[in-house]
Computed example of a mutant assay.
Amino acid sequence: MIYHYTSIDTLKLILESKKIRFNNLNAVDDELEGELFVKKSLAQLIFVSCWTTDPNENIPLWKMYASTRGVRIGLPDYPWRKVDCKKWDAGVIEVRYDPSEEYFSPFDIDEIFGESHYIIPPFSLPISDSNAKKAFSKEVIYLPERELKIKYSDHYNEKLTKPGHAGLIMKPIDFGLYKHEQWAFQKEFRFVLFISPMDKEINLSAKNFHQPMVNSLMKYIQAEYISPIKDFFVKIDPNSIENMEITLGPHCTEEDIRHVQSMRQKHGIVGDLYKSGVRLRR
């Protein structure tokens, strides 16, 4: 199970929309994540949803993200839908099937290719059940600042400065992997998407539409165009919502508790409801 600390208002938005918000690396709390790229415009195209694998309550996370009157939600480590890839239009995305496995994705085809965006593979490619966690998510690796800068230089920046195909030689899951050791207390587990704006002139029905998409992506990375996409919402599997575990913050009032209980009843949540075991003086 993975855990996310948030406010009661945000919990309400999650339950009403049945979606989780992804923010780009320019909006996360660690400013260094976006600044270490030699092509800083790249950070705006990498979207993350941040969780923790720590089953124990984390006092800094309560204070930073739920202001001690919020909640901690618990979901399976793959909380998303499993869209059957056989429903995809094979003319748009090449699907390689292994007859011995079933393939699925978190997205329908119209979510991969939206009116104003497209999600870059491998998240738009089929992934097997056994590899779902590895393909779509990762546990963050924490490094001292000197090692972190070396890692960015070797792992990202040297490749990003190569002409013609910068960034495309790396898988999207490679991004967002490393953080400064100052953040190690978070024990972060994150989902990562690489999302590029969809230029209006791109015609998905054209035979050679892939090359204009690559050219479009390179404009945003190399020419440092500003992306209009600031966040992205991904649908949660209904079963994950139904079995959501909720822990009430250390300073939740009786009114807060009633509010959360009402939301659980309204949305048919049967997962456990706990009160925080952390005792914090107000």
Rank of each mutant, 00 (worst) to 15 (best):
S17I: 10
K235M: 11
K39T: 14
Y103K: 01
P99D: 13
D108I: 06
C85V: 14
K219R: 08
P76S: 10
G176K: 05
F191T: 07
S49F: 02
D77N: 04
D154C: 06
V214G: 03
G34D: 00
P76L: 05
S240N: 02
S67T: 00
D129S: 11
E245N: 07
E16K: 11
N56F: 02
N23Y: 13
L168G: 05
L273E: 07
G70I: 13
W183Y: 11
H210N: 06
T68Y: 01
W80L: 15
L204H: 01
Y152P: 14
L45M: 15
S196F: 08
R279N: 01
I112D: 02
M170K: 09
L204Q: 03
L11R: 08
I169L: 15
P126W: 03
V95W: 04
K162E: 14
L42I: 09
D89N: 15
D9T: 11
W183T: 02
L143Q: 03
E33C: 03
N243K: 10
P172A: 15
Q182A: 14
A66E: 07
D98S: 09
D256P: 03
D30I: 02
K19N: 15
E201G: 00
D29F: 06
F47I: 13
R21P: 06
A132F: 12
Y5S: 02
I141T: 15
P106I: 05
P144I: 04
K159T: 02
Y152S: 07
I120L: 14
D129H: 10
K19I: 09
E33K: 00
K40R: 15
L42K: 02
K266G: 03
P238C: 09
S128D: 06
K39P: 10
D77S: 04
M213F: 06
I202R: 03
R21M: 14
Y65C: 11
D237I: 01
E147C: 06
V38C: 12
L125Q: 02
F104Q: 02
F191D: 11
K187P: 01
E16L: 10
F175H: 04
I127P: 00
T6K: 00
R146G: 02
E115D: 09
D199K: 04
D272N: 07
K235H: 11
A135I: 14
F191K: 08
I141K: 14
L13R: 10
Y156Q: 03
N239Y: 05
D98C: 05
P106K: 06
L75H: 01
E111Y: 09
E242M: 15
A223R: 05
P60E: 06
S105A: 15
L36K: 00
P121N: 06
M64R: 12
P212E: 04
S276L: 08
V260L: 05
T247V: 15
Q186K: 07
E94G: 09
P172H: 13
D199P: 08
S227N: 07
V38A: 10
P79K: 13
S216K: 06
L75S: 01
I119H: 10
P197T: 10
E115K: 03
D110G: 00
I173A: 08
L177T: 13
S17F: 12
D98M: 03
W88N: 04
M170D: 08
K235G: 04
P238S: 07
S128Q: 09
E158L: 09
S100T: 15
K179P: 12
Q182H: 13
F123Q: 13
I73R: 02
L217A: 12
Q182P: 02
S262A: 12
N157D: 09
